[in-house]
Design a protein around this nucleic acid. Structure first.
Lengths: 158, 158
DNA sequence: ATATTTTATGTAACTGGTTACGCAAATGTA
DNA sequence: TACATTTGCGTAACCAGTTACATAAAATAT
């Protein structure tokens, strides 16, 4: 943190949040590469989701993870290419892809879980001075969902 | 927030931070576009920096804002193209660009400040249940700087 | 004085996300 | 039954960042 960023307070918070998530993201990629793991950030979310639910469609995933659907399409396509996900057409609705984990996924997940679990402990460690961060984040997400940033700014001005 | 994201707790925090900063970013762009303002997110940081310091180089800016230098180059080039920044070669060091605000910048800033200040009040409003967020963010940034995420994960595993 | 290393900056390629658009299948309605 | 609307999802173009690499100038060391 530089003096300037401290001084401008809330004005710099958006880019600092972006930078923090970027730092974690690139460091995660670096970790996987260095350890020779053929996975990418966010795949753990999909793996866990499918482990829990068994089968899911793109739209269900995007709603559950709060990602845009094209983002989910990209992630899922990479995971298919790596042989971790298979797709079947829904018998009642031909538009839907029913996605599920492959045998290879079930085989490899335990190896990856070592890293994911260590990662969670590191996050807990890094955020230890912010013990309520998850509840606070939920409140913030709710607020911007109820009335977005742009509308709030316009309300303040008019 | 979905049940699933609540349930996985710290495992989803990186992508939630990314999403939050994205939401704020795109909403800011949307605001500027809707109001016909010919500026972009982050320009306010550069404007404020140059107002305070008068002159700065690319490298000084990237250190102060904690952005990579190519990121600063991109932002500054756009601001030059819009006529808000001029560059002069440093007399002692020909590699350096000494950047400063143009007359047009000084003229237009008051108009933009209305939006930036309203934006700050909105951020305060959105983060009102996280009153210590700035101090907490500083601590987190310091921690990942001291020892990055990847190294911390490897330490936990070995 | 010359060779080496460091610094300032620019450029290219890539990242995980987004919005915008298109299309076909399913659903609702006249 | 026909037509209009909604839904699922694929693709393209874009976005603000990043890392990796190149180059020239400055600083340092020999």
């Amino acid at each position: 943190m530089t003096d300037f960023l401290n001084q401008i307070k809330y004005e710099g918070i958006t880019s600092r949040l972006k930078r923090l998530s970027d730092v974690l993201l690139y460091s995660t990629k670096d970790l996987y590469r260095a350890e020779g793991l053929i996975i990418e950030p966010n795949w753990n979310l999909i793996f866990r989701l499918l482990q829990e639910k068994g089968e899911m469609t793109i739209t269900e995933m995007s709603e559950t993870l709060q990602f845009s659907h094209p983002a989910v399409v990209k992630i899922v396509n990479k995971m298919k290419a790596e042989g971790y996900i298979t797709a079947a057409i829904d018998s009642k609705d031909k538009r839907k892809q029913v996605l599920s984990l492959t045998q290879k996924a079930l085989q490899d997940i335990p190896k990856y879980e070592v890293y994911w679990n260590a990662g969670i402990r590191v996050i807990e460690e890094i955020f230890e001075d912010s013990p309520n961060i998850l509840e606070e984040l939920s409140k913030i997400e709710l607020k911007v969902k109820e009335l977005d940033y742009k509308q709030r700014v316009l309300l303040k001005i008019k």
